[in-house]
Simulated scan of single mutants.
Amino acid sequence: AEMEGTTACRINELPDSVLLHILCFLPIKVAVKTSVLSKRWRYLCTAIPSLEFDHKDFPLSMEEAVRQQLNRLDSPIKGADLFTVLNQFLLSHDGRLDSFNLSLTLKNDSERRLLGRWIHHVIATKKVTEVYLKTFLSDNPNNCYKLLLTPFSCRSILQLRLSRCYFDSQEGNEVVLSHLRSLSLRDILTNEGLLSRMLSACPQLEDLSLDLFSSNTNDMQIVIPKLMNLRIVYSEFSNLKLIAPSLQFLEFDCRSRFTDKACVSKLEGDLVRLKSLKACTCFFE
């Protein structure tokens, strides 16, 4: 008992910055429970610089969560759906936010609009540097979620990972990710125009990953002057032209993940600085 008390005192002697770093490694439900430890810990979890939410950790629907709370069948954090918990967290969050990681299922337009407000808040207000977003549209499973980014509000983002969602940059509503260094796009059906517009919004991009990425056009072109690392796996392209004079590391595999079909692709480009190449089911020209 004496040793446990000594350990507890030592933990309390740590500065808030160290405690917040420790809380980043805990599941969000566990981190919230630390608020009952003492007055100092009460609001500490609202300043966590890295937030990660997964819909699998919140299996209840919004209606079931409200019913449980009204009937007092469970604690607020256990008897809550992801949308309620995340909305409360973002409203009460106090401090900087470095990383925002979110995986969720969207069932209707109302939830899609709410997600849009969250993303705008963490980017425009919190100046987040890393955004990881994975979505699934249960009411339209064949489509991807369109991430609405406002012009000139995304300068803080350094790393962006999107799964089954995308953004667009069109004339009159240009999106400028002027400091983005790393971009990952997964499980997206696109066309040459959309991919080109996304990449044109990232002039400083150094790392690009396309996974389960497919296009409805035969020819694709990637033009990124400062690109150093390119990974294209389980993606279907007939012809791919690379204009990436700074490219050093390339992984290219056009096999289908779900069938034995190999999509033979032609890869064209002047790769004079290439140091490492891993290629399958393609030929160079």
Rank of each mutant, 00 (worst) to 15 (best):
Y132D: 11
L91Y: 04
F83Y: 01
W118K: 10
N239I: 07
N191G: 05
L20I: 08
V36G: 02
K39Q: 06
N87L: 05
R257Y: 12
L194H: 08
R117Y: 10
R10H: 05
D219E: 14
Y234M: 05
Y145Q: 11
S169I: 09
V30Q: 12
L158N: 14
T150A: 15
D74V: 05
C165T: 11
L271E: 02
S110M: 13
L227N: 03
F213T: 14
R113Y: 14
D207A: 09
H93Y: 03
I188G: 11
D98I: 10
S99P: 06
S103I: 13
V30N: 12
F89G: 10
E2V: 14
F53W: 04
C282Q: 03
R113Q: 15
A244N: 06
R257T: 12
S215N: 04
H120G: 14
T190H: 08
M220T: 14
K33T: 14
L240T: 06
L160W: 05
T129D: 10
L37G: 13
K275G: 01
A65D: 04
G193P: 06
I123F: 06
K241C: 07
L73W: 02
L20R: 02
L277Q: 05
P49I: 00
A65R: 01
F258D: 13
L19K: 14
W41G: 09
D187S: 15
L149E: 08
L26D: 12
N101E: 12
S153D: 10
S17V: 06
H179Y: 09
N218M: 12
M62L: 07
C254D: 08
G79I: 01
D16G: 08
I77A: 01
L158T: 13
D16H: 06
L104V: 04
S214I: 11
I28T: 15
R113G: 15
T190M: 06
R40H: 04
S110K: 14
L91A: 11
E111V: 07
I123V: 15
M228K: 09
N143A: 15
V272I: 07
L205Q: 11
L194W: 08
L115V: 13
D74E: 09
S50W: 01
Q159I: 13
D57H: 00
F237I: 10
V32N: 00
I224Q: 12
L195F: 08
D253E: 06
C45G: 10
R67C: 12
L44R: 03
P76Q: 03
R186C: 14
L183E: 01
S38I: 03
S209D: 12
R67N: 03
S184N: 14
T135Y: 00
I77S: 00
E251M: 06
I22C: 04
G116T: 12
E171C: 11
D270L: 03
Q248K: 02
E171G: 15
L210I: 14
N12H: 05
F25K: 07
K39A: 12
S215P: 01
Q68D: 04
L147H: 03
N108H: 02
S246W: 00
S182M: 09
A262Q: 07
E268C: 07
L44H: 00
E174Y: 04
V131L: 13
